[in-house]
Design a protein around this nucleic acid. Structure first.
Lengths: 196, 196
DNA sequence: CCTACCGATCGGTAGG
DNA sequence: CCTACCGATCGGTAGG
């Protein structure tokens, strides 16, 4: 019987524990011994699955980066309006936070500990993503469907609002993800859209 | 001749260097030897001015916390409308970022490395600040001057947008602080205010 | 503010 | 996946 689909591999388990601990204590303050202890193995055993501590961070951050890039490529290839593109991206961006709170948190807060050449690659991917989002905003302004705001400020106001949901969202707080999503969309899009 | 007002004390110099390095590399990854080297003294000499590394972080974070608390107390004691309170606080919040980029960045990103009892004190102060800002938003909704959004989501959308200006603002980018301030105000307040 | 130094901890390796 | 271990580094101290 194939149990691969049902059980989580040790490698994935190490990654999940790492993401949780990196989020709680930060990358630099988390030790290989702590990760091992939380998995239930010895520190040396982690090195059978990963080259080193830096590879753990790399895997976490680049999984998130790939998710964003994939979604952006998909959106870019459609012919929907800038408003719909923006709304879709914001919704996706928020959903990804709920799907992978630890991974997003680590990516937001610990990416600078990535080693080269990963660090440069990560920064480049993020820059590309931000440029593309900026383009959508500029298009919206040019078409007259968005207010004539500074597109850089608009870009980072959107990104900050959604990137940092991770920092305050607590499942026990009893705000449903849908409510968060709808309200952020409402506030940002009302703030940006031109009254018609 | 009194040169105190003109020269920066060694103690302040150590704090400024610490804030810069904590921002660049993170608290845990910054060593006392690095701080000392950037000041131009030996590591052991820092201990003449500060009890330890943790005190450096404490001083940085609590200076920022005091700034916020002071401003909130001042605003609370006025009788201006919720809209004006919000606008004033947002403007202040953004200005403080430009005044003290390193300190704000360290406070945003490294506060969790504070030691007890400082950690609890810091979290309590932040919670109080957020509650008061939330109250202003609730008041605005009740008075019918703000849209009926979820006040928690509105609170953190505002806070994220302004807290993280620090993360993307670069003086060389040539966007004037005033433009950033006006645009964020425009986006957030247009998104939140009820059309009259 | 410096020289000299220490105890603890950490990432990682050898070898099985 | 474990036992045994190492070299390096770090925060901090003693004493001047």
């Amino acid at each position: 019987m194939n149990t691969k689909a049902l059980t989580i591999s040790r490698k994935e388990e190490i990654l999940e524990v790492s993401a949780r601990l990196f989020k709680e204590k930060g990358y630099a303050s988390t030790t290989m011994r702590e990760i091992a202890e939380n998995v239930g193995i010895e520190a040396a055993s982690i090195y059978h699955h990963f080259k080193g501590k830096d590879e753990l961070l790399h895997e976490i951050c680049f999984k998130v980066a790939r998710d964003y890039t994939t979604k952006m490529v998909n959106i870019e290839s459609t012919y929907i309006s800038p408003i719909d593109k923006l709304t879709t991206l914001i919704r996706f961006h928020i959903q990804i936070v709920f799907d992978n709170v630890n991974g997003i948190s680590v990516t937001n807060n610990e990416w600078r500990h990535l080693l080269e050449p990963g660090l440069s690659e990560f920064k480049k991917a993020r820059q590309t993503y931000e440029n593309q989002l900026g383009q959508i905003i500029n298009e919206g302004i040019k078409l007259g469907v968005l207010k004539e705001v500074d597109s850089t400020v608009a870009l980072y106001t959107i990104l900050s609002s959604i990137r940092w949901v991770e920092a305050w969202y607590k499942p026990e707080k009893d705000i449903h993800p849908n409510i968060i999503e709808n309200n952020i969309i409402q506030i940002l899009m009302n703030g940006l859209q031109k009254a018609s």
